[in-house]
Amino acid sequence: MSDITIVRATDDAHVIELWSHATARIDSPSNHRYFSEGYAQFGLDRGLRSPAYTFAALDDQGHQVGLVAGQGREAPEVIDVMDLPSDRPEAGVELLRHAAETMRDEHALDELALIVFTPPSDVPTELADVVPVVTAVEAAGFAPLVQRRNYALRPADDTWSPTPTRLRLDPVSSLDDPRLRAMHLAVLEGSLDAHHVDGLQRHTVQEVSDEELTFMLKADGIESFFLAVDPDGHDVGLVVGSSWDGTPRGSVSFVGVHPDHRGHGYAAQLTTAMTTRLSEAGVEEIIADTDVTNVPMAAAFGSVAFPQIQTRLDYVLR
């Protein structure tokens, strides 16, 4: 045990106060945004941040030496804000472990995710600013799950390369749509996504599908779901994308191609179709990501010229 005192935010004003004493220790767009002025209030206003998910470490003089915060609506879904002191590694581990265990216990969570954002790199865990953070994360009990590439495109910059397509996008009216259900189950077959692979090792394909569709419904809304139909009338894929309330930003959240129709460049076409749709709706910056091991999806983003802005390290505590 270190000589720190761990406190939890008592109300929104306390969240903002604790946040104001924290700093981004890793140079990445997400970290700079999380620690920018006004972000904590923005997260609270959107219902994504909460005093219950915000913890700080104080030294014996009462000075703040670390911050950990989770994100979620009804329950914490991920820890994604961390200011862990590199000069006091034991304090960072203690703070992170306490925050994670408290949130898991109070919400009876089977698992809790954690994300570390780093500069674009093939070996981000070897970067000097990243080493102390991932060391603390693993010492606190989190296991590495996957490394992902994060992309951000500004269509107005005219740097992207739309892929021509003859696919039609059919909107989905509800999660009970049998075409949606059938497509998502099919997409999970042979999926290269590490979260899918991990889920399918522990649950049935139906359970994995139900959980992911429900999560995307909460995050994006049913109006963001579209089935892709080829000129012959066959359902060939699913794409989900939405704008983010209160911001000029949005995301291509999901791109999946039916296994019977893979190898025709449909992933790039679906990415193009959703990017165009979001741009026409006024979205100025479009976010996307994929696992570094998902070569076909990375190639799709590359062909459409989505620039990589950072690397994301996904961890899980079970």
Rank of each mutant, 00 (worst) to 15 (best):
A288C: 07
A69E: 05
P76Q: 09
G47P: 04
E211I: 06
D314W: 14
A140V: 03
Y151H: 09
Y34M: 07
T102M: 01
D105P: 04
L175E: 08
F226Y: 13
D129M: 08
Y39F: 11
V229Y: 02
R8D: 03
G62I: 07
R104N: 05
V130L: 03
P231Q: 05
A156F: 14
P164S: 11
A24D: 05
P296W: 07
L227A: 02
P85H: 04
T272C: 06
T125W: 07
M183T: 11
L213S: 09
L95M: 01
R249D: 13
A194F: 13
L278W: 00
I287D: 08
A100L: 09
L127P: 02
Y315M: 06
T5F: 05
D220P: 09
A13S: 13
Q71P: 00
H264V: 10
K218D: 15
L114V: 05
D170G: 04
E90W: 02
R318C: 01
M82A: 08
V240I: 15
R179F: 12
R249G: 00
V283L: 00
R33M: 10
T102E: 05
P132D: 09
H196K: 10
V68D: 00
V187S: 05
S86R: 12
S174T: 15
W19M: 10
W244I: 14
E94A: 12
L200P: 03
P259G: 04
A91R: 01
G92P: 01
V65K: 03
H98C: 11
A139D: 14
D59L: 09
S161A: 13
T271F: 01
G92Q: 02
D198C: 04
E223K: 12
I16L: 07
Q41W: 03
Q71T: 14
D110Q: 14
T276G: 04
S173E: 15
S243V: 02
D59I: 11
M82L: 12
P119Q: 09
R33I: 01
D45F: 03
V130Y: 04
G43D: 01
A75N: 06
L313Y: 06
A108I: 02
V316T: 13
R97K: 15
V146K: 15
A228R: 00
P164K: 11
V68K: 01
V15E: 00
P144S: 06
E17I: 03
M1T: 13
A219W: 08
L114P: 02
T10K: 14
